[in-house]
């Protein structure tokens, strides 16, 4: 068995007085796609956003427990959020390219982290990122055009290119296909599968078929608790917990 890249131990998250996550214990294995599923408000997005500390932006949000990335506690006082987020990229539900050119969108992360000193190096990295995101063929001749001139699926791939440009260890995806049509979704799913060999991917999705298609491991959250976590195949064919069964078969649980 591989060593987990992310492991959560007794994670509790509170929004003010209400508790959003209860004692989450979860190990994410490297170079695998881990899907987080569950009904709305079950805490799966909260857990996802705990991993790159995006929850810090919410003033009333409080975190308890231990969450480690490569063995290092990411909620430790010595951890700089900026450095953490360079290691943990994120792709959002709605494609959100910056209102800048396609090139600048991808180059932004490299610029702020001062990862490329020479201009040619920057261009190479942008090209590499766009190629990895399977977008290069479509945009190589129009890198100066604004990022939002692309189609929805292309925009989302641009956001993925932007996230992987800084070569993070982990890429978090928060329902990346929910705003896309089936074809664009299929392209992204294919991309996620090919990105798996270089990155660890954690994806929140509402589509169980999608989770079944692209993930190797699936975690089912319900009412802030991790109900079941295991091989995707097992979760979707023979789940052990009745709540999981009810949820994935579409029965009210």
């Amino acid at each position: 068995m591989l060593d987990p890249i992310i492991s959560a131990r007794g994670v509790n998250v509170f929004y003010g007085d209400s508790q959003a996550l209860f004692d989450i214990e979860l190990d994410v294995l490297p170079n695998k796609v881990t899907a987080l599923i569950g009904p709305s408000g079950c805490g799966k997005s909260t857990f996802l956003r705990s991993i790159n500390r995006m929850n810090d932006l919410i003033p009333v949000c409080r975190f308890e427990g231990e969450l480690t990335l490569s063995g290092q506690d990411i909620y430790d006082k010595s951890v700089d959020v900026v450095a953490l987020r360079a290691q943990v990229g994120m792709v959002f539900q709605k494609p959100n390219p910056f209102p800048k050119s396609i090139f600048e969108n991808v180059a932004y992360g490299l610029r702020i982290h001062k990862m490329c000193t020479a201009k040619s190096e920057l261009q190479d990295r942008v090209e590499w990122s766009l190629k990895s995101a399977g977008l290069w063929e479509e945009v190589s001749h129009r890198l100066d055009e604004p990022g939002n001139s692309l189609s929805g699926g292309q925009q989302q791939r641009l956001c993925i290119a932007r996230a992987i440009a800084v070569q993070p260890k982990v890429v978090l995806m928060d329902e990346p296909c929910s705003a896309l049509d089936p074809i664009a979704t299929a392209v992204i799913e294919d991309l996620i599968d090919s990105l798996r060999k270089d990155y660890t991917i954690i994806i929140v999705t509402h589509s169980m078929q999608q989770a079944a298609r692209i993930s190797q491991r699936t975690a089912f959250f319900h009412l802030g608790k991790l109900v079941e976590f295991g091989e995707t195949k097992t979760i979707f064919t023979t789940p052990k917990d009745e709540r999981t069964q009810n949820y994935i078969t579409g029965r009210i649980g």
Partner: peptide, 19 residues
């Protein structure tokens, strides 16, 4: 979403706002 996207890339809050 712009600010969020920038923050998620590791921009500091000041960078996210001014960029």
């Amino acid at each position: 979403s712009f600010k969020e996207g920038a923050l998620a890339l590791g921009a500091s809050p000041v960078q996210a706002v001014f960029h």
